[in-house]
């Protein structure tokens, strides 16, 4: 599914500029011009919501104020890496292969990093932190990356110009640039996920908290005429779904009863690089504090 934002300007202009019957050519042109101008200005001062660069899925929202977040229990995590693989497959992340010329161009929306270096090594899964105060969004010159109303730091692939400023701004280095046009093995191409747009070469990409699955879920519950429950979303993203230890939990941080918000209040809960002030929405649970993790300030 394409996640380009609906361009309300163009739609509006198309609607208005339908020629009325019995109009002369001149007056029609005049009307067209006037319509274009009013459409342009009108769209500008239209409702705030319309202009925000949000994905199609926002339109099927149910009016609830959500804040999606994630909790990763490092005491449960065995570092098996299934989340990395699942994410790769789910989100059509391109492969770089064995070519040594392409070293350093690989893309991993979810990666494993040894955060606890003393004693036994602890590989820590690192998705995008979906910060509440995201530095990458601040620096984007064209608003290609933005925060949805539900707190997800999303990206309009097609608008990105590839300046890579966001990569430099991210303290967690969770953004990846497509150094060349993406490639997949021929057999793999038939297994690409139709729900996620592939990205062209020259744009930056990142974890989206599987935003397409949230959109699908919203459509599903609307059809079933019910509300989204915590059980629906607890293992919604591909990484959470694939984790054999159920160490990754997803959910609504604004819902006090959700598992993820209860876990985020746990005394074991930490956030990465709290001192940078980004307020990440991914919580790490660990009895012993790994390097780089700070106690949650309350």
């Amino acid at each position: 599914m394409n996640m380009k934002p609906a361009d309300s300007t163009e739609n509006k202009m198309l609607e208005i500029s339908e020629p009325a019957e019995g109009l002369g050519r001149k007056s029609f042109l005049k009307l067209l011009g006037a319509a274009a101008v009013t459409g342009w200005i009108g769209s500008a001062f239209g409702s705030e919501k319309k202009k925000a660069p949000q994905g199609e899925w926002e339109k099927v929202g149910d009016g609830k104020k959500r804040k999606w977040g994630m909790a990763i229990d490092l005491d449960l995590c065995s570092g098996c890496g299934s989340c990395v693989v699942a994410c790769h497959v789910e989100n059509n992340v391109p492969f770089t292969g064995d070519d040594p010329k392409k070293d350093g161009t690989e893309i991993n929306w979810m990666t494993l990093l040894p955060l606890r270096q003393e004693g036994e090594g602890q590989l820590t899964p690192l998705p995008c932190m979906h910060c509440e105060n995201p530095p990458c969004v601040k620096v984007c010159p064209v608003n290609a990356t933005f925060q949805t109303e539900e707190g997800i730091v999303d990206q309009i692939w097609d608008r990105c110009i590839g300046c890579r400023y966001c990569e430099n701004a991210c303290p967690y280095s969770r953004r990846y640039f497509n150094w060349a046009e993406p490639e997949w093995p021929e057999t793999y191409k038939q297994a690409l996920n139709p729900d996620v747009a592939t990205r062209p070469g020259g744009v930056v990409e990142k974890c989206t908290f599987c935003v397409h699955r949230i959109r699908d879920l919203k459509e599903k519950v609307r059809a079933e005429d019910r509300e989204i429950t915590d059980d629906d979303v607890r293992l919604l993203p591909a990484c959470a779904q694939s984790c054999p230890a159920e160490a990754i939990i997803f959910g609504d941080l604004n819902d006090e009863d959700s598992l993820v918000s209860r876990l985020s209040d746990s005394p074991r809960a930490n956030r990465l690089l709290e001192h940078v002030g980004t307020k990440p929405k991914v919580f790490y649970l660990a009895k012993e504090k790994p390097i780089g993790l700070d106690r949650k300030e309350s």
Binding site: K101, K102, D103, G104, T105, E106, I107, E167, N168, S173, Y176, F177, N178, W179, A180, E181, G201, G202
Partner: peptide
């Protein structure tokens, strides 16, 4: 593509 440059992902 920009793989021909010396730049790589941070």
């Amino acid at each position: 593509g920009e793989t021909v440059t010396g730049m790589r992902t941070i």
